[in-house]
Simulated scan of single mutants.
Amino acid sequence: MFIEPHWTGDKRGWIEVICGSMFSGKTEELIRRLKRARIAHQHTEIFKPSIDTRYAVGDIVSHDERSVPSTPIGNSQEILLLSQDRDVIGIDEAQFFDAELPSVCDRLALQGMRVIVAGLDMDFQGKPFGPMPALLAKADYITKLHAICVCCGHIASYSYRKVHSKSQLLLGEAESYEPRCRVCYAKGPAADRAIP
């Protein structure tokens, strides 16, 4: 679908996507970029899905407990209504948003905004998660972060679910998920625990 450009002078926007497994530092990197934008006196707005209440209702919070205030929203169209006169838009946990998120990000970028999106690229089954594949295709810049495999210590790209549930959407932390490399992820419950 073609989107009518709405450029403001020479101001050009773009889309940055930060992706990876759970515990790879996606939210931490998003917070770092947003804080740098604020230091540069840029007007920022941060959004997260309203279903994500793991740490706080109104903040995005990284696993190392860094946080910034955010606006919880129910769908991606709300971002368009709440991001007027902003230079930088941050979006956390993008995998939980609806399929319209990539189009929303396109519109914001065409309006001259820098859009920084963070989310899981794969679900617990190793399949592309929500709107993330389309966001990765549209991104001007992509950062793939890795965790450390809890079984062998190699880089981890997979989020292994430790609890039994077939639902794609299961909010949880270390009690429900752990980062694993490709080999240990494929071994499933049989993976050896070389790391305490």
Rank of each mutant, 00 (worst) to 15 (best):
K187R: 12
Q84H: 01
R54W: 06
R161C: 10
R180T: 01
E16A: 11
L135H: 14
I18P: 05
A94T: 03
V163Y: 10
D106H: 07
S103V: 03
A139L: 10
P196G: 01
R114V: 08
L80Q: 02
K138H: 15
G172F: 13
I148P: 08
R114K: 11
V117L: 00
A134M: 13
I79D: 03
S103M: 05
I73A: 00
L108S: 05
H146I: 06
C181L: 07
V150K: 15
T8P: 03
I148F: 11
M1L: 08
S62H: 00
E175D: 14
K144P: 14
R161G: 09
A99Q: 08
K11Y: 06
P5K: 02
E29I: 10
V115S: 03
S67A: 12
R114P: 00
I46P: 15
E65S: 07
L34V: 12
D98K: 04
R38W: 05
L110E: 01
Q111D: 08
P72C: 02
A118R: 02
D87T: 00
C152H: 13
Q77M: 01
S103H: 06
I15T: 08
H146S: 12
D140L: 06
L82T: 00
L34A: 07
T143F: 11
F2K: 14
R33K: 15
G188T: 03
S103E: 12
M122W: 06
R12G: 06
Y185F: 11
A109S: 14
Y160W: 05
M22R: 06
L170D: 04
H6K: 08
I195P: 01
V17K: 13
I91V: 06
C184Q: 11
Y141I: 15
D121K: 05
R66A: 00
K11E: 05
T53A: 08
C181H: 07
P5N: 01
S62T: 04
L82A: 04
K166W: 06
V88G: 03
A56F: 01
R161V: 04
P189N: 01
V61R: 07
L34P: 05
I195N: 04
S62L: 07
I73Q: 00
D85V: 02
D87W: 00
G13N: 15
A194H: 08
I195Q: 03
C149G: 10
S83A: 05
I91R: 00
V104H: 05
E16H: 10
A190P: 00
P133H: 12
I148K: 11
V88I: 03
D123I: 09
K166S: 06
E173A: 10
K26E: 04
R36I: 13
G13I: 14
C151Q: 09
S67C: 05
I91Y: 01
R114C: 08
I31F: 07
K35Y: 02
H164E: 14
C19Y: 09
I89V: 14
A191T: 13
T27R: 02
P128N: 07
F47Q: 15
V88Q: 01
L170Y: 09
D140K: 08
G172T: 13
Q84L: 02
V163G: 09
P196A: 04
I148V: 15
G20T: 10
V150T: 15
H63S: 09
R182K: 09
R38E: 15
G188N: 06
D140H: 12
C149N: 11
C19N: 13
C151I: 04
S176E: 13
L30T: 12
K127Y: 09
Q125G: 13
R33M: 12
P49W: 09
